[in-house]
Amino acid sequence: MILQLSFYLFSTVLVASAMMVVTVRNPVKAALFLVLAFFSAACIWMTLEAEFLSIVLILVYVGAVMVLFLFVVMMLDIDIARMREGFAKYLPVGIIVALGLIIELVVVLSGKAFQLASMPRPVGHDADYSNTKELGRLLYTDYVFPFEIAGLILLVAIIAAISLTLRRRNTKYQTPGNQVKVVKSDRLKIIKMKGQPGAES
């Protein structure tokens, strides 16, 4: 009973916040609603005993990706009035894309794989069942090659992103180590001079 109630609660919040993401005007609020949508999706996964995936969803998407997303969205100065100008112009394209999406969803969801009969309720496990361990076992035995390939692609992407920032720029910068190591004799030269005759009286 509790499980059903929590499922309906989280899925209502999920659907409502997903609706708000696309309808709300303010982009920052839209991003915050997206955070809420991710969070409720994670809660639904939790009720499926997929605690590892659900916490990782929170950790990666809510904790890191959306923070960076908000970071960018907050910096943008979006003029809502100007965005609404093009509404009529883009409407036909938008309708076509939306229709395409709806048709695809209907085709996929009405297929055999999504019938209730082919999706039985997953069997419950004991309290000492470790979701994480099972997932690790599966990833490193049955799916080890796809997993390694995905890892390699991500590694290449990271290296590519870093090498993009490594362009030699013509900027001057300080090396803090040298700044810290500086001593008096590097900056200050004391010269002994003879006093000029007549300068002092």
Binding site: V56, L59, G63, V67, L70, N131, T132
Partner: peptide, 19 residues
């Protein structure tokens, strides 16, 4: 079972309040 991850996930949520 995954309490370490749970703690890490929750400490990463605190930043939203600040933002």
């Amino acid at each position: 079972d995954a309490s370490l991850l749970y703690v890490l996930a929750l400490t990463s949520l605190g930043v939203y309040g600040v933002i």
